[in-house]
Design a protein around this nucleic acid. Structure first.
Length: 323
DNA sequence: CATCAGGGCCCTG
DNA sequence: CAGGGCCCTGAT
């Protein structure tokens, strides 16, 4: 593992579209714990790679829901150009969907008698991804067919071997390796880290990205159907992984199509207070109610229950999360 | 102790 | 388009 310490710092501000919810956007309690970011109320840290160069980023809330403003501090070594700063700014705006127009969605939420309190509580929250396509793809592959504990284990062993530990602002935050880092790493070496059949996926995906076969900027501009088609071409990407990528990386709000069995159980409780409702019924009802914003609406309700879980014991939920 | 399904996907028939 | 196999782990 590579370790770097960055002491130089430059700052700039971003004004997200209003309304905006800082903590809901920068922290997702449903995600598994990892060393790739850190969060305290109104403060957030992560690493970011811009044209293969790595930076430390601290983001602070300096505004209010209706008058949003965030301060970004970029940590680097040696020097940084205006161009790089601008690229970082634009990338943060994209990844955290800071320019989102959620007027229509918020109107929809208002007419939802049952869940309005939740939508109101998280008003201005964005669906976001701290990571780029390759990085989130790696995470998604590590989620496949694994319990949380195992996913955490696999993430850590890979980061310890190929990642970068970045020290900045008194924090130690990791970055996922660049795809070409695995050029000279064999599938067997990966396999020996106990990541199982995923070694094959990660090896092949890294190769494809290193060779520049995937055009992330273009994928971000495609309509949902075309983007999904392109994602599914990636080795190891099926319906569930494509859904994650489309929602988090491409900010497609209406990706509530594939429902995994464990999600189905949680949705059944959340929406029907029953142990098990058929996936088709769940999907149809949600799509009918939230239309183009199906996944986004579910995201609000989903994250809300995981926020509650932080300080409240929810027995049925504990049972459905495989730790 | 053994067996099995699982925070999916690929491949084969 | 159905079903087996895949790495491992935890539940039974």
């Amino acid at each position: 593992m590579e370790t770097k310490t960055f002491k130089n710092k430059k700052e700039f501000f971003i004004s997200p579209s209003s309304p905006f919810h800082f903590d809901g956007t920068f922290h997702k309690p449903s995600h598994y714990p990892n060393k790739l970011s850190d969060w305290k109320s109104d403060r957030y840290w992560q690493t970011i790679r811009i044209s293969k160069r790595i930076f430390g980023v601290k983001i602070e809330n300096k505004g209010e829901t209706q008058k949003p403003k965030i301060k970004v501090s970029v940590f680097y070594d040696k020097n940084i150009s205006e161009d790089e700063l601008e690229k970082i700014k634009q990338e943060i705006i994209w990844r955290f969907d800071l320019n989102a127009d959620l007027k229509e969605f918020n109107n929809l939420a208002k007419s939802d008698k049952r869940f309005y309190p939740i939508f109101k509580k998280w008003l201005g929250m964005r669906n976001s991804s701290a990571h780029n396509l390759y990085e989130l793809l790696i995470i998604a592959v590590l989620l496949q067919n694994a319990t949380v504990r195992r996913t955490v284990q696999m993430t850590n062993v890979l980061l310890d071997n190929y990642g970068t530990k970045l020290k900045f602002d008194g924090k130690e935050i990791f970055a996922i390796w660049l795809p070409e880092k695995l050029n000279d790493v064999s599938e067997k070496e990966l396999r020996d880290l106990k990541i199982g059949y995923r070694a094959k996926f990660i090896k092949r995906l890294s190769q494809d990205f290193a060779e520049g076969k995937i055009d992330e900027p273009k994928l971000r501009t495609l309509d949902q159907e075309s983007a999904k088609k392109e994602m599914m071409k990636l080795y190891g990407v099926g319906p569930e992984t494509a859904r994650i990528l489309l929602f988090e990386v491409c900010h497609q709000y209406n990706t509530f199509d594939h429902i995994a069995p464990w999600q189905q159980k949680i949705y059944s409780r959340l929406f029907y207070e029953k142990p098990l409702v058929s996936a088709n019924k769940i999907r149809d009802n949600i799509k009918k109610q939230y239309g183009e914003y199906s996944m986004l609406a579910v995201h609000y309700i989903w994250e809300d229950i995981f926020w509650r879980r932080k300080h409240e014991k929810i027995d049925w939920l504990e049972k459905e999360i495989r730790l």
